[in-house]
Amino acid sequence: MSVQLVCEKLTKIYGNRKIKALDSVSFSIPSSGIFVLIGRNGSGKTTLVRILATELEPTSGSATINGIDVVKEPQKLREKIAIVPQEARPIPWMTPRQTVLSYLLWRGFSVSEAKRRATESLEKLKLGDYSDTLNRMLSGGLKRKVLVATVLSSEADIIFLDEPTTGLDPISRREFWDVLSEIGKKRFTFLTTHYLEEAEQLADRIGILDCGRLINIGTLDELRHKIRYNYSMKLLSRPPDLEVKDGEVLTGKDGQTRILTVEEEAFRISRELSKEGVKFTINPVSLDDIFFYLVRQESQERGDGSAIGAATE
């Protein structure tokens, strides 16, 4: 049996608006570990997740997960998947225990088995102390955890989490990463986010989606090799006489300058900036830099000048 997620020319056009949310997306990845799909708001992440989770029909193209056709065999696939949709929230008049229990009943578990699994899942997510508190009394982070506890408690092999950490404070988000990381060890987790740092921390593989197109896909290392630069420098403002001989300069709308460059040039620029007393940071290229670089490149190819608010030279 194929243990892969395969998408072939998956396209979605929303009928009434004639908007192409997905534009011939094709890729193939192993259905194990954590796959993180990153992209800006409106890039098509949720549309892709909803199609794969059998909630939405594609306009054309096909997709299979572990050999099961997403479009033709939804019922078969639904036996194996679970999702926490974007903007989902636990029902306020219920407690976390009731939320998880009812979800398991919905999946057809017996009451006794559902109770056992619910307790286990809540304990695993350190929600035991809040099990019988009304959801409306919980913090944003705990509410998200309750939703993750529902899918975690299920027997699903494939978990879709659409922007599970959006709106969480940085500390809660980091705590959440441990949970997601654990889930990814045992089940194929398909996660979307617009926090690049999150993808960097969690992903076994990363896909970059922009304007409905899949720009690139691979492990973090593979993506690093997509650009020939290995250092990223950030300056609050760029001195007028600073010359970059080998690299890409991206100036944000806020005046901040990002220079992607090679090692030797990075050291030369560093010396020059130090001499002039300009403050800067220098780091190996991160996913953030790769994302900016690849999305900008794609936008240039499309002839779209509005690439992530950055002027380049």
Partner: peptide, 9 residues
């Protein structure tokens, strides 16, 4: 949405 993506018809 959560129920659609589950074994419940």
């Amino acid at each position: 949405d959560m129920v659609v993506s589950s074994p419940t018809g």
